[in-house]
């Protein structure tokens, strides 16, 4: 039970915090999208790593066998959906960003706020 035994969890945590930090700290909407992506990726790794069964094979089953020999396929399926959600979010976010750039000439949040919201 050393700290390193949970290296996957640490990876998840580092990725997640990095993603959130980017969302919080950056002024640029564009970078926020990147941060969000990172954040979502961490969740995907979190799910995938929990499906792992040590020493097991990929869950491609041809004849009836012991389920414990295979990794759990469900999280992978779930994450396929989550990836789609993530892609869609990114696409929508970028789409909106392009139009923000057309409308304001910038994607920096503080400049936009100064332009429009403080008046």
């Amino acid at each position: 039970m050393s700290i390193l035994a949970h290296y996957n969890d640490w990876a998840v945590i580092v990725l997640m915090m990095a993603g959130l930090y980017i969302v919080i700290s950056t002024r640029s909407f564009l970078k926020k999208v990147v941060g969000l992506n990172l954040f979502q990726t961490s969740v995907i790794i979190f799910y995938i790593s929990m499906a792992n069964v040590t020493g097991a094979a990929a869950p491609i089953v041809t004849e009836p066998v012991d389920a414990a020999d295979y990794a759990n396929p469900l999280p992978h399926v779930l994450m396929l959906t989550a990836i789609v959600v993530g892609v869609a979010t990114t696409a929508v976010g970028l789409g909106i960003l392009v139009r923000i750039h057309e409308a304001y000439g910038t994607v920096e949040e503080d400049e936009i706020v100064r332009h429009d919201f403080d008046s």
Binding site: L20, V23, I24, S25, D110, V113
Partner: peptide, 25 residues
């Protein structure tokens, strides 16, 4: 965080209001 990363500039960064970020906080 600034102490840790030096990723953003020295002045004015924290004086501004960033609504999106504040929700995250």
């Amino acid at each position: 965080l600034r102490g840790l990363t030096r990723s953003h500039g020295p002045h004015g960064v924290l004086a501004r209001t960033w609504p999106t970020a504040s929700v995250m906080v």
